[in-house]
Amino acid sequence: MSVSDLFELFLRFTTLSLLAIGGAITLTPEMHRFTVVEHGWLDDAQFTASISLAQASPGPNILFVTLIGWNAGGWAGAAATTIGILLPAATVALVAYRWTERLSALPWVRAFRTGMAPITIGLLLATGWVLAAPNAGHPVLIGVTAVTAALVLLTRLNPLWLLAGGARAGILSA
């Protein structure tokens, strides 16, 4: 990958960064079009693996962007996509946060906080639902989800035990 390719990769991810409202995963079709279809910097299998590997490892799922960059252009590519996707959004987030803190007495800012909170909770419920839905035909996995939720709500058990138990249930029921 040439320096101008790297620069193009970086620039494209900085623009995508500002569009990533509600999670960068919604931008995967655009990332795929740009890196795989348009430039052929990586192939379909590498692209898909980037997403599933990031989901399987600990930490923010945004790291799939790092793997796309790594597959496309090695270490420099990884740095280009990661910094590109983080920098503009992080700047906006900090500025917006300080602004709402400073203006927190304004009625509209207070209304925004009160009004957006229930939507955040509804979206979290929806995320859990969407994650569980593909397991609908698999009673063991649905059971794992239900038991996890119940144990977290009713006990102080460290969720790491639940993850270990879930992995075991997945293997035993396969």
Binding site: I121, L125, A132, L141, V144, V147, T148, V152, G170
Partner: peptide, 27 residues
């Protein structure tokens, strides 16, 4: 590996649901 990841995925769904339910009383 695939089976273990599926099981852990089911746990993640449960963790998110539990978090949402824990935050409900703020409303």
């Amino acid at each position: 590996v695939v089976a273990a990841l599926r099981g852990m995925g089911a746990v993640s769904a449960g963790l998110i649901l539990a978090m949402a339910l824990k935050l409900l009383p703020t409303q």
